[in-house]
Amino acid sequence: MIPGYDLTPPDPKAVRELRLEIEEFHAAYCWTLDRGAIEKWPDFFTDDALYRITGRENAEVALPVGLVYAEGKAMIRDRAFAIARTQMFAPRYMQHFVSNVRVVAAQESAIKAQSNYLLLQTLMEGPTTIHQSGRYYDSFARQGGRLLLSERQCVYDTLIIPNDLIYPV
């Protein structure tokens, strides 16, 4: 669906350690967003990273639009700053759940994985609702021994967004 991820995956047993490392990455990433530390969110990306959120109806036919489309960490920072400090929206809590992590490429020069995500949202006087069900298509670079996202494409199935999507996925 996203070019570059339709690879023949390596034997899962051979890449267990890498999968574990990616799962730990997801846990740290989600913890940062879910506790509201949005201005720390850009730290998970390389300087030239692409971050895009798009509906599955677009991804399946290679339409390029992004609900969010950031080229480079500077644009990612600008979004984090805007959401954290200047945008007007009702308060809410978000929780991410990431599972089904599949390593699809495991060379140190090209680490790619895809994972399912579920994003729950709770408005102050609302129920907790599934805000988005989707899949991450991730490319990682290792810098200073640490994994960083050089690309994260979030493809959501929930085509009709409940009003809006404020925080990053």
Binding site: T54, G55, E57, N58, L63, P64, V65, L67, L159, I160, I161, P162, N163, D164
Partner: peptide
Amino acid sequence: KIFGYYRNELP
């Protein structure tokens, strides 16, 4: 040239 779609419910 169509770039794609967003949909949302606005209550």
